[in-house]
Design a protein around this nucleic acid. Structure first.
Length: 480
DNA sequence: CTGGGGATGGGGCCC
DNA sequence: TGGGCCCCATCCCCA
């Protein structure tokens, strides 16, 4: 990419890759424009040659996609590739992965998927399966904790990191919730980055050698293409060494896709435009139109759209969009808890944790619900209280009905009415915080869908976008 | 439903 | 001018 070229303006369309893949998947399901049919033990799977070449090293070699210029004789007819060595279920799962960036498999079928992924050269899936199976992955990307996600049910191995927006979900970093849990608790789950990014992974083990097991296309594919496929490791599978990225402490590994990561293309173009402005002036995000204050903050913000997470913890493999977040994360591994409570032995990772904690000692509950007059020590707890259904009644003020202290240690609650004056503007606002519920009713109950990697705020944004309401979507946390 | 810990994104300050 | 560092607000999740 060439950021900052004079006269060049990069306008990112973060949804494009999602929509593209989604439509390709729809075409595959309807058989539209399919130029390759995979068969396995009688089952037939129409698919697209280009997609398979993009996701699978085997097909990449088979079709000579990397040398398309010279090997342009690849036939345009519909090829049939018989893959009896890959079980139909596994092949189906791998195809789903190719078109959605989400691998959904049953634990019992993990082995078959692993073998299929190895045969087809889909490294990230193979890594994920290996880790789920407890076999240490070779790619160094994987964290060491390895869990046993999902006892016997289906596993949705999703790339919450949005694997560069290649699937139906939106990649935002709001990547939270279940996916994040999965990432941290069961490292394999995080491994389903998309085929695109996988291609540029710096650390790839030797490709599988499928030639002895796979039957090349029976027709269509040119002889040369088959020869490419049968070539014995002639293609150098290793990716280019990763470039140096911003600050790179020892804990940091180089960014995964340093090559043409979409984030770079997008963010870079944006930066190029931004450079023409006064850096100290607020900059508007070209995606969400949000005004970003502070010099150099727009690229950071853009990563929330692109999903790029250049900063990876070398200990557990968790990735972050920001270096400072990784730094804080590293405290979990080093055991460092720099924020200690002066009143008790409690120590914390974050300053604000200590701040919250101190409110426990003081007993101060400065955030009062204006309707029911229940007081909270934390503002977010008050907001949650007001968003929920807990506050449906108007209770008498506390001075009229003393609140039973929650902790025996604080018999004299400092909740004098005078101390309950709300300190934040939102605390005094009426109960108009239902936008989320309206837009996203029962978000928590969307478990299965959300588990595919869609963050909460993403859902809101999606809905807003789908409904084309207003001029654009906003981050859901801007509401108050 | 609430308390509490942790994660994430934005802004300010400074180098 | 960009980025590091820190703090804050907010959100998510678990007990």
């Amino acid at each position: 990419m060439s950021p900052g070229e004079d006269g060049l303006i990069g306008i990112p369309f973060p949804e494009h890759s999602n929509e593209l893949l989604s439509r390709l998947n729809a075409q595959r399901r309807s058989g539209l424009l399919c130029d390759l049919t995979l068969t396995s033990r009688g089952a037939r799977y129409p698919t697209h040659r280009a997609v398979m070449a993009a996701v699978s090293l085997y097909f990449r070699r088979l079709f000579g996609a990397e040398e398309v210029g010279e090997a342009g004789e690849v036939s345009e007819g519909c090829s049939v590739c018989q893959l009896d060595c890959v079980s139909p279920d596994a092949l189906d799962a791998l195809l789903e992965f190719a078109y959605t960036a989400t691998l959904t498999i049953r634990s019992s079928g993990m082995r078959e998927v692993l073998e299929g992924a190895q045969l087809l050269g889909i490294q990230c899936v193979a890594d994920a399966c290996r880790h789920i199976l407890g076999e240490v992955g070779e790619s160094g990307e994987l964290g060491g904790e390895g869990g046993e996600p999902g006892g016997g049910g289906e596993l949705a191995v999703a790339n919450k990191e949005k694997a560069s927006q290649v699937e139906n979900e939106q990649k935002t970093p709001s990547r939270r919730k279940q996916d994040r849990r999965n990432v941290e608790k069961a490292s394999p789950v995080r491994l389903a980055w998309n085929a695109q990014s996988q291609e540029d992974k710096p650390k790839c083990e030797a490709p599988p050698t499928p030639e002895h097991k796979l039957r090349p296309p029976q027709n269509g594919a040119s002889q040369s293409a088959q020869q490419v496929a049968l070539m014995n490791g002639g293609v150098h599978w290793d990716a280019q060494p990763a470039k140096e990225e911003e600050s790179k402490p020892e804990e940091l590994t180089p960014p995964l896709n340093h090559a043409p990561s979409q984030a770079e293309t997008v963010g870079g173009a944006v930066e190029g435009v931004a450079r023409k402005r006064k850096s100290q002036a607020p900059q508007q995000c070209p995606v969400c139109q949000k005004i970003i204050h502070g010099a150099g903050k727009l690229p950071r913000h853009m990563r929330t759209h692109t999903g790029e997470k250049p900063f990876q913890c070398m200990t557990c493999g968790v990735r972050f969009t920001r270096n400072d977040k990784l730094k804080i994360h590293m405290r979990k591994h080093t055991g460092e808890r720099p924020y200690s409570c002066p009143s008790c032995p409690a120590r914390f990772l974050h300053s604000y944790d200590l701040k919250n904690h101190l409110s426990l000692h003081s007993g101060v509950r400065p955030f009062e619900c204006p309707l029911c007059h229940k007081a909270f020590a934390r503002e977010d707890h008050l907001q949650r209280h007001r968003k929920g259904l807990a506050c449906l009644e108007l209770r008498p003020r506390l001075e009229l009905r003393p609140r039973r202290p929650r902790h025996a240690a604080s018999p004299h609650s400092p909740l004098s009415p005078a101390s309950l004056s709300p300190t934040s503007s939102s605390s005094t606002a009426p109960h108009f915080l239902f936008r989320q519920e309206v837009e996203n009713p029962g978000a928590q109950s969307h478990g299965p869908l959300i588990s595919a990697g869609m963050g909460y705020s993403r859902i809101v944004q999606w809905r807003v976008m789908e409904e084309r309401a207003g001029t654009g979507w906003r981050e859901d946390n801007e509401e108050s």
